[in-house]
Design a protein around this nucleic acid. Sequence first.
DNA 1: TAAAAATACTCCATAGGTATTTTAT
DNA 2: ATAAAATACCTATGGAGTATTTTTA
Lengths: 312, 312
Amino acid sequence: MTLTELRYIVAVARERHFGRAAEKSFVSQPTLSVAIKKLEDELGVTLFERGASEVAVTPVGQRVIEQAQRVLEETAAIKQIAAEGKDELVGPLRFGAIYTIGPYVMPQLIPLLHKRAPTMPLLIQENFTAKLAGLLKNGELDLILLSLPFSEPGIVTQAVYDEPFRVVVPAGHPWGKKTRIPAADLCAETLLLLSSGNCFRDQVLQTCAGAKRRANNGIQQSLEGSSLETIRHMVASGVGITVLPATAADAKTAQTRLVAVRPFAPPAPSRRIALAWRRSFPRPRAVAAVRDAILACSLPGVTLLPHASPTV
Amino acid sequence: MTLTELRYIVAVARERHFGRAAEKSFVSQPTLSVAIKKLEDELGVTLFERGASEVAVTPVGQRVIEQAQRVLEETAAIKQIAAEGKDELVGPLRFGAIYTIGPYVMPQLIPLLHKRAPTMPLLIQENFTAKLAGLLKNGELDLILLSLPFSEPGIVTQAVYDEPFRVVVPAGHPWGKKTRIPAADLCAETLLLLSSGNCFRDQVLQTCAGAKRRANNGIQQSLEGSSLETIRHMVASGVGITVLPATAADAKTAQTRLVAVRPFAPPAPSRRIALAWRRSFPRPRAVAAVRDAILACSLPGVTLLPHASPTV
DNA sequence: TAAAAATACTCCATAGGTATTTTAT
DNA sequence: ATAAAATACCTATGGAGTATTTTTA
């Protein structure tokens, strides 16, 4: 049984005439006759009573044809569904970001993307890189925003922007008068850091480790804060100093006057932020839309990388 | 889009593995891959995300596959309907008989056929030959029982039995003592006949006309009765004599003692009763079942013709 | 005789197979 | 290195065509 055969019997039932039905079906009359005979043989029933100059539908034929019409309608619905799903910017996109990016990008990104792709709601989740990577791989997330380096089999990444680190000290701290802070200077200070599991923590430690090698010094102490915002509060209250990504450091908050934000002296440490998705994820245009929207956000201090190539 | 392709995507969605889905579908893995790619191209959407060692269904794919399952279910229903309609002895048979046969055959035929083919209800109708022929030709009846000769384009007839005519006279009538009545004797009598339109009336008149040619006599008078039963009542009450088919004449009724039934002298006039159906009517076994059932009825005086061939 | 469906045959598109390559783990 | 899907290529079924015959009104 084929859908074509079903279309044929419906046509004959409508026209009650093989020749006319063939015309309407854009095939020759013998094609139609043969196909219908084949279907009748397969079903083991006679669908049409062929009288000279008149074709009548048998009672079984009537029921078969009604059912055939139902099949054809449901088939048309498949095309309809596919057509609706064709636009990659339609349908929810499950989007994840690491804790140290989400709070500073999402507030700008969400309204912008909602304007650009109103039929693509974002389902957003913040978590650690490792957790997001797992969700991405098993298909519970479609796209994640994280910090490089990141490499997983089957996952494509594409850099979006570079984000320099900033030194954040309490207002009145002596460094507040310096224009640029050398990385090595940090090693002698009490640094407030995120709890382990956050990649940014490791990046800051690496920065100091790199500086340490050159300066032969060590970080004396590092208190742990649960989020960048908590850490900034801690800095504002004079507990210590910290290093924050530019988007977090430059964010305007109530504590803005209680802290001083200073850039590093070259070579300024930074992190490279990238999007990551499954190589097989079938909505490249959705990814591109998110990427373009991120690039269009005015993120303080970052260097946009609009021409970065995707990397496996 | 083909039903086979739909079966394939449903299989892959079930197995989440092309190779296993191919096995379950009894085709090779490349066959499946190619078919699914073809469908995806046709629909313009990606149905499956192929990751190494895992196949995931895309959101559109999910909806397409659910719809595909619906299509396949409806398709299975067609086979179901056909299978149910396959038995020709299932489903109503629209059956007609002329006025002069129906009342004498149906009472025996209906219960017998109900026993033999309980799933084939008879929708019965009595009428004149001409009316039944019209209904048969335009498909409002499937099968009719009538008296030959009968010839219509596209209609097949098959004789079932020969039924001799009988002379019916009031009790006490002088012919009651005769064993056999020559047809020519009728011409001098007042004959009670059916109204015109009944083929039996014409057959009786023809019988007498034939006898008349030999005997040079004419029927003096013919009163019209609306049915054979009415006519028999009229004979019983002495209004006249009549000619009835054997099944009508020999039927046991309250008037049995008030009339005498006598056979004709050879050559005994008779009528040949036949079934008629459209040449294209697709239930020959249903026709055969009715025919066999009629032959199995104990109809008084008739000569069964179990080996008569169908005639166009 | 005319009109319609069935049949005969021919052809080619394509569904399906086997062998192989590509890809990702 | 292994497992899975994709690709390449070949074959054969059968869908569709034209021409013709059969059938019936």
